[in-house]
Design a protein around this nucleic acid. Structure first.
Lengths: 221, 221
DNA sequence: CGCGTCATTGATGTGCATCAAGTGGTGTGG
DNA sequence: CCACACCACTTGATGCACATCAATGACGCG
């Protein structure tokens, strides 16, 4: 939350997030088609959001961790258009959207905050589109790891070590790759001495090497 | 714009969009890195938005037509993170964002409208991620054509005939394909009698066939 | 009319998907 | 506590969809 609020304003924002909800690992916070009432701020735990085609294929559209907000997709049509699934036991703050709108009419900082959260999501998705549309497997995985570790670092975790909360298949779905390709690409990074991988434990040995993979043109021709 | 506003409110919203700006074909409305001040509602013309990697590759993130709003990417960091390029001579309404925020604190309908526009963009991008992450070339192009013609139809144009404002390369960039693949896929649709194509003029002969391509699993095994 | 841009089409190459087999870690129940 | 089953993961062999390279054709504009 942003700064510069007086006690009354802070209290009222607090009231919005008064109710909480726990979601067990594997459980859903909301599902495609459910009616939209609230945004959710993640307190603890880890989520994925995914959309599906009618014929059953699905696509992970994002991974969310503590401090991030999910449910924005529901605003436009008053029902959700994706599933939010907990990848580990989680707890969220339930924030009824009508109350957010009400209060953000009075508290400028809240209004601005809401706009920025939505804009941030749009920009993030631009980045994913760039990744899906024009990067090769190694670049995708490198970008993914860098993004994850950067977000974890901002939350006080290590810059070089992380535990993946999702399966290879879920990573693949997010990155537009098959799980075998994700696994092979991990192995390749290990061979090259860029990372150590032991199951879901990943240690990044050279952040620079990863950045080099993301930024460099596929060195061909 | 939504309904249910009184004259005073309408007038004040009108004041926001009082200033206009023309952009010639090929010109940019804003560029990556430029400071963000306003959202733009397209009055006439056709735009693309695109992001770029440091090494020069770029990705079209969307095509926008009359009535749609661009510039939402700029809100989060007060500067734009993509380019908006006119694909034909265009005119936009310039809507200073601070005035939008100001007025949407007073006019509930405007506030709701702004939220829905941003949410709609998020949902649209989910769809693009699904397309880029899990569809084959034919499905991507079919989905693209259906989406375009549906939006044009909503604006009073034909359900079956359209003129592409963008090159094959730009379509390819949006769909994560090379221009040759876009061209070949068009040719394939023509062979199958699904569309007629003459340069940028496209006539859809069977909307159902296109829908079938999008929805059907790639008929394998 | 000639040039540049955009589009089509063919030949070939390659990155990733697919299919398949096997390994290792985890949890459960006897 | 161990045997077994299950699931996630790894790794190899093969195939295919799309990329790449290259040549030609069709507009449109100065």
């Amino acid at each position: 939350m942003p700064l510069g609020l007086n006690d009354d304003q802070l209290k009222r924002i607090d009231d919005i997030v008064a109710t909480r909800r726990k979601v067990k690992r594997g459980g859903t916070l909301f599902r495609n088609g459910e009616s939209f009432t609230s945004l959710y701020a993640i307190r603890t735990g880890f989520f994925k959001t995914c959309v599906a085609t009618e014929d059953g294929r699905d696509q992970v559209t994002g991974f969310q961790m503590a401090g991030e907000v999910i449910g924005l997709d529901g605003i436009v049509n008053d029902h959700h258009t994706c599933d939010a699934v907990a990848l580990e036991d989680a707890e969220v703050c339930v924030m009824p959207f009508d109350r957010i709108e009400e209060l953000s009419r009075e508290v400028t900082a809240l209004q601005s905050h809401v706009h920025k959260i939505m804009s941030r999501e749009i920009v993030r998705e631009h980045g994913v589109m760039l990744l899906l549309g024009s990067m090769r497997a190694e670049e995708r995985l490198a970008a993914f790891l860098l993004n994850l570790v950067q977000r974890l670092h901002a939350r006080g975790f290590s810059q070089s070590e992380l535990v993946l909360r999702m399966t290879r298949e879920e990573i693949g779905s997010y990155l537009g790759l098959k799980l075998e390709t994700v696994s092979r690409t991990f192995s390749k990074f290990v061979e090259e001495g860029i990372v150590e991988v032991k199951q879901r434990h990943v240690r990044i040995l050279s952040t620079d090497a990863l950045k080099g993979i993301v930024n460099n043109q596929q060195a061909c021709h």
